[in-house]
C-alpha cells in the first residue's frame, strides 16, 4: 500500500482515472466539478494522454463516443444540468454497446438550481434519462478514498460489460479534501475486437445504434443487452452494512448523506439505541437482497437523501413490510442534520 496523501475529491477521481489507464478526457466547465477537467488538462499530457475542452456537454459526450469506438479508455465529467445534456449521447453509447466512464458531481436542481451538493439526480441516473431500454452501472462514493477506488473499478466494469459506468458523486464529495491512499492499477486487460482498429486483412468494424432491418434485429439486440444487465445485477451489487445485525432502526443512504447517517448511528448507539446504516455503493444495480437482509430486525427504516425522495422507491421495493419505510430529506443543496435524524429515530421508540 502506498502512503497517505491529502487530495480533493475531484482531483483524487482524476488521478484514479489515470491510474486506471484513462488517456482521453473530454469535458465542459460546470461547477462543482471544475477541478476534474483542470486536473486532467495538466496531468494527462504528462502521461501522453489527450485532454480536450469540448464546445458543449453534448460535444463532450459525442467525443467520448468517438474515442470509445476506437477502443480507448475514456472519461467525461459534469454536474447535474450538464448531465441532462449528455443523455442522448448516453442512450446512443448504450445502443452501440460502447464502454465509457461518466462522472456526475451532483448539484442542486431543478434547472440551474445552485452549486451546492445535492442528490436530486438519482432517478435520472438509475432509470436513465435518455430514450430506450437501457441501463448503466451507477457507483456512489462516500469519501475521497472511494472517489478514487470506485473510479478504478468503473473503468474495469465499463470494459468488462461494454457499458457506461456513471460515478454519482455530489458537490460536497467533489470539494472536500481528505487523506487517501491512491489505489493501484488492477492490471486487467480487456480485448476489444469490436473497436475501429486492427482491420488489416478483414472487414473493418462498423459501429452504429441504428438497427432498421430485419424487423427483429433491434429486439434481439435489446434482449442481449438485457442479458448483460441481468448478469450485472447478479454479480455487481455493492453495499456496506454498518451495525445492521441487531439494528431496530435502519438508516438507508448513499454518498454524503450516508456520512451524516453514520455519525447519527454512532451517537444513537452511544445512547443505547440499536441503530444501523445500510449504504449503497451501487445505485444500479440496486443491492436489494443485501438491504432486505440488513432490514430483517428493523422496526423502522429511515431513508435519508439530499432530495425530496427518490432512492426511497427502490428501498420500498426491496424490503418486506414496506410500510416500515419512512423518509427524511433536504433538497436544493441543503444537508440533512444529524440531530434531526436522531430526533426522528428516538420518536419511533416512543
Amino acid at each position: 500500500m502506498g502512503k497517505q496523501i491529502l487530495m480533493k475529491g475531484n482531483e483524487a477521481l482524476g488521478e484514479a482515472a489515470i491510474i486506471a489507464g484513462c488517456r482521453f478526457y473530454f469535458g465542459y466547465p460546470i461547477t462543482p466539478q471544475n477541478e476534474i477537467p483542470a486536473y486532467m488538462s495538466r496531468r494527462l499530457p504528462e502521461v501522453g494522454g489527450t485532454f480536450l475542452q469540448a464546445e458543449s456537454e453534448i460535444a463532450a459526450v459525442n467525443m467520448v463516443f468517438g474515442a470509445s469506438a476506437a477502443g480507448a479508455r475514456v472519461m467525461t465529467s459534469t454536474s447535474s444540468p450538464g448531465m441532462s445534456l449528455k443523455q442522448e449521447g448516453l442512450s446512443y453509447l448504450a445502443g452501440a454497446k460502447l464502454p465509457c466512464v461518466v462522472v456526475n458531481i451532483m448539484r442542486g436542481g431543478p434547472g440551474l438550481g445552485n452549486i451546492a451538493g445535492a442528490q436530486g439526480d438519482y432517478f435520472q441516473a438509475t432509470r436513465g434519462g435518455g430514450n430506450g431500454d437501457y441501463r448503466h452501472i451507477v457507483l456512489t462514493p462516500a469519501s475521497v478514498q472511494e472517489m478514487a477506488e470506485l473510479t478504478v473499478l468503473a473503468f474495469d466494469l465499463a470494459d468488462e460489460y461494454r457499458i457506461t459506468v456513471l460515478i454519482l458523486g455530489d458537490g460536497y464529495l467533489g470539494q472536500i479534501s481528505e487523506a487517501l491512499t491512491l489505489p493501484e492499477p488492477t492490471g486487467k486487460v480487456f480485448e476489444k475486437p469490436w473497436a475501429l482498429t486492427g482491420a488489416k486483412g478483414r472487414e473493418p468494424n462498423k459501429i452504429a445504434s441504428l438497427k432498421l432491418v430485419p424487423d427483429h434485429v433491434l429486439e434481439e439486440m435489446n434482449l442481449s443487452l438485457e442479458r448483460t444487465y441481468n448478469e450485472i445485477s447478479s454479480r455487481e451489487c455493492r453495499s456496506e452494512s454498518y451495525l445492521t445485525e441487531d439494528a431496530e432502526y435502519l438508516l438507508v443512504a448513499y454518498g454524503t448523506s450516508s456520512r451524516i447517517c453514520r455519525a447519527a448511528v454512532n451517537e444513537l448507539r452511544e445512547e443505547g439505541v440499536k441503530a444501523g446504516l445500510f449504504r449503497l455503493i451501487t445505485a444500479w444495480p440496486f443491492p436489494a437482497a443485501a438491504l432486505k437482509r440488513a432490514s430483517l430486525k428493523a422496526k423502522k427504516i429511515l431513508t435519508v437523501e439530499m432530495s425530496l425522495g427518490q432512492m426511497i422507491e427502490d428501498v420500498r421495493l426491496s424490503v418486506d413490510n414496506p410500510e416500515r419505510v419512512d423518509f427524511y430529506g433536504r433538497s436544493g443543496g441543503m444537508l440533512p442534520e444529524t440531530e434531526e435524524i436522531k430526533r426522528r429515530i428516538k420518536a419511533y421508540g416512543n
Binding site: A59, A60, N62, M63, G66, A67, S68, L196
Partner: peptide
C-alpha cells in the same frame, strides 16, 4: 465531435 474523439485516438 464524434469524429474528433475518434481522430484523437
Amino acid at each position: 465531435p464524434t469524429a474528433t474523439g475518434l481522430k484523437t485516438v
